[in-house]
């Protein structure tokens, strides 16, 4: 299963421990981790389920490209890091 970590700054606002996911792409991963913690979703995605403007995600150290469709692929061994962008503070 892929591991999912969050920027520590998100924990100021909401519980977000390291999680794991079977999602095959970013959309599936976010749907899965938010299933048990629905409050998490609006911190990561906007009203149209796109990545928030000042949130970014790294999959195995590579920043995701598809910020709207969330179709970047994820392996079972992937490390996913949900981060805040340097913009937007």
């Amino acid at each position: 299963m892929a591991s999912v970590e969050f920027t520590p700054n998100l924990s100021r606002h909401i519980e977000c421990e390291t999680l794991s996911s079977n999602g095959a792409n970013l959309r599936e991963l976010i749907d899965e981790i938010c299933c048990d913690n629905p409050q998490l979703k609006p911190y990561i995605l906007d009203d149209q389920d796109r990545l928030r403007k000042h949130v970014t995600v790294f999959i195995d150290g590579v920043q995701v490209q598809d910020r709207k469709g969330l179709n970047d692929l994820i392996n079972m061994e992937s490390s996913v890091y949900i981060a805040q962008a340097l913009s937007g503070g």
Binding site: P42, D47, Q48, D49, R50, K68
Partner: peptide, 14 residues
Amino acid sequence: SFPKQSDNPDEGQS
């Protein structure tokens, strides 16, 4: 929040 508009991620407000 604005309702989700469509399956087109380019559309819709937030």
